[in-house]
Design a protein around this nucleic acid. Structure first.
Length: 200
DNA sequence: CTACCGATTGACT
DNA sequence: GTCAATCGGTAGA
């Protein structure tokens, strides 16, 4: 795999387009312990305006600061004693991001299993906090530049460029407000997609 | 300092 | 399907 990271311009577009287009791309983490990578199979968009489910809804604070930072950076937040990973979309002061909810493991499965300890393949990276544990993504990587091939980045994948019939669009999972918005994107039929079976 | 919350997960019926 | 444990991060006293 010698592809180079997606450029910043990829992230400087409509958050819905970015969430849709990240499907099929590869998330890569390089660490002294080894390299892990996975195909992105599920994302959610969090809008800059009128989206009460977004952490950016009430404006910038220390926790969500990177969400209002440069596009193509990571926004890593903690919730329920775990971490979740987003890619920041659009320019400074905007406050939109794409949550990566699930990937399909490609490289480094043994390392992922060590980090997640004894979990079966299907449970390694299905879910936003699970994939962060498998990829060793913590708050340390909050604000990290995803457009350079260092530590953590995203590459265009072999199967990127999915047709509309290969993508399902649903409500977002777990949010307690703005539940009506259809902002979750997933590769139809992929076993590593989280949520109810009927949504896979 | 304490109180509270959650874009979750895993265990359980 | 239901539900409680989990703890980092924040807000408030």
């Amino acid at each position: 795999m010698t592809a180079s990271p997606l450029p910043v311009t990829f992230y400087d577009r409509s958050v819905i387009d970015v969430a849709r287009d990240l499907l099929g791309c590869h998330l890569v983490h390089q660490h002294p312990a080894g390299r892990v990578s996975g195909r992105i199979v599920e994302t959610e968009a969090y809008l800059a305006d009128g989206d009460s489910a977004s952490h950016a809804f009430k404006g910038p604070n220390r926790k969500n600061a990177s969400m209002f930072g440069l596009p193509g950076r990571a926004y890593v937040y903690s919730i329920h004693a775990r971490y979740c990973f987003n890619a920041v979309v659009l320019g400074e002061g905007i406050g939109s991001a794409v949550l990566v909810r699930a990937v399909e493991p490609i490289e480094g499965i043994k390392l992922m299993q060590q980090r997640r300890s004894r979990h079966p393949l299907l449970d390694l990276t299905r879910g936003p906090a699970r994939l962060c544990e498998a990829f060793q993504i913590t708050r340390e990587l909050d604000g990290h530049d995803l457009a350079s091939a260092d530590r953590l980045w995203i590459e265009p994948g072999h199967y990127a460029g999915l047709t509309d019939s290969e993508v399902i669009v649903t409500r977002r999972i777990g949010v307690t407000s703005a539940q009506e918005k259809m902002l979750r994107f997933a590769i139809e039929g992929n076993r590593f997609v989280s949520g109810p079976r009927s949504w896979r």
